[in-house]
């Protein structure tokens, strides 16, 4: 199955840029989380759901909410040496404040099993966007690697 994201060649020369999409905001956020993991790991299917972490982030704009979500994945990669796939993702909006809750499922980095690629340093705000399209939602993210 073709994943719901693709890497962009034409922006941010030294970094990794991608667009991700889905029918809903939630699907689009999940796709962006997979695209971030896929920047670090060749086959995201090799990351087994052995451990989980609760993810709870908030922001006053949808694109910044995505920034916070992806940043959590980058944090766990260093702090716990954990690679995580995101599940059970819910976004709520109250009065212009967005809150996201999700579960991150994954396992400790294993260089023998996980074809490791680049170490993502950070999520940048460069060209960051989450927008509604005629067919659903689309996000653009640039990661510093």
């Amino acid at each position: 199955m073709t994943p719901p994201y693709r890497y962009l060649e034409e922006i941010a020369t030294a970094d990794v840029a991608f667009e991700a999409w889905g029918a809903t905001k939630e699907e689009t956020f999940l796709a962006a989380a997979d695209a971030t993991l896929n920047t670090m790991v060749e086959e995201i299917g090799t990351v087994a759901p052995r451990e989980h972490r609760e993810i709870s982030v908030a922001a006053d704009a949808l694109d910044l909410l995505l920034f916070e979500l992806l940043q959590e994945l980058v944090y766990h990669k260093d702090a716990g040496r954990l690679l995580l796939r995101v599940r059970e993702l819910r976004i709520e909006e109250t009065g212009g404040e967005y809150r996201l809750r999700a579960e991150g499922w994954g396992e400790t980095i294993d260089p023998d099993r996980h074809g490791l690629l680049a170490d993502v340093k950070a999520v940048t705000l460069h060209r960051l966007s989450v927008e509604k399209t005629p067919s659903g939602w689309r996000a653009v993210v640039v990661l510093d690697v």
């Binding site: 962009l8 060649e9 941010a12 020369t13 030294a14 970094d15 680049a118 690697v145």
Partner: peptide, 11 residues
């Protein structure tokens, strides 16, 4: 200084 994006180089 990079002249080609990472994604392009990887391809």
């Amino acid at each position: 200084g990079r002249a080609m994006s990472r994604t392009a180089a990887r391809k």
